[in-house]
Amino acid sequence: MAESVALDQPLDESTARKGRSPGQDAWREFRRNRIGVAGLIFIIFIILVAIFAPLMSPYGYATQNNLNSRAKPMTAYTITTDYLPNCHWAGTPLEWGCTIFFTGSDALGRDLWSRTVYGTRVSISIALVASTVSLLIGSIYGTVSGYAGGRIDNFMMRIVDFLYAVPILPLIILMQVYFKALARQGVREGLTGAIIELNQQMGGMLFLFIALGALNWIGMSRMARGQVLSYKNKEFIEAAHMIGASNSRIIFRHLMPNILGPLLIAETLAIPGYIFTEAVLSFIGLGVNPPTPSWGQMISEGYQGLRSNPHLVLVPGAALTILTLAFNFMGDGLRDAFDPKLRGRK
């Protein structure tokens, strides 16, 4: 095509074929990976569920009545007037739906389906916020450290080594216990009061965000630094120096786009870990505040009656499993797409 056009003619931009960037290539590759795409679609679905949770749950997640304690799935129970204001499906009142719990109810008579649906909000916000926080802090810290090199790099990495040596999970548990105790005492003044207030507003998720972000940026910063070191001495970076580009231009235009792919993949693959950590913390009572529903907390509440009422554990447990699997599949698909060398044999 190019050969047929005289070289000295002015170029009509519209005839210039747009090339495919490495990112576009990776996306095409990713689309061929069925399990990865299925994971992505499921994650999008769960995000939609989280956003539109009120429309997808027939009852409120906190509405309770002891008469309906531990209802079995799909069995008819007396729904009292407590439930009725919330009894609808996608906005339309449900006459028949208001007589049953699809997946049963918990010890306090709260609808398990509604709680599971609202539980996506906790898991998804943890997944998105914790990964964004750790990616942002980690990639900037690591890039600066690797790019600066020499003494600065040495110093910054020793800080990271130090933080690695500190057992952060016990520290987070202590922090949670401390702030929860303060909250119970009703501290309202100063910075501590403000933090507690904000945490209450977020249903107890603020500390989880901080904890997970603080826990994971360290590994991310090491990875970012390693990536920067492998690119820093490439000739195209030298070429950028040669034309007089500033350091920030080199970092943001030349380094970042090249290192971001592997970091994003690592972050996607770390998300199941975040969701699990949240579940674990909620399971031991250090996660979100009741009555905010979190899958870990629901499992924790249900496991005592596991034999007589297995659905109390199975429903949130299944949701947790499928969501983490979806993130894992998507992460694997992304990794294969960005780095074909790592792809398993077909």
């Binding site: 490495p22 490439k234 195209f236 070429a239 090249n258």
Partner: peptide, 14 residues
């Protein structure tokens, strides 16, 4: 200006 040795490494792939 400078012309580099390795034409595969001297152009930003992105």
């Amino acid at each position: 200006q400078m012309i580099f040795q390795d034409p595969y490494a001297s152009l930003n792939p992105r």
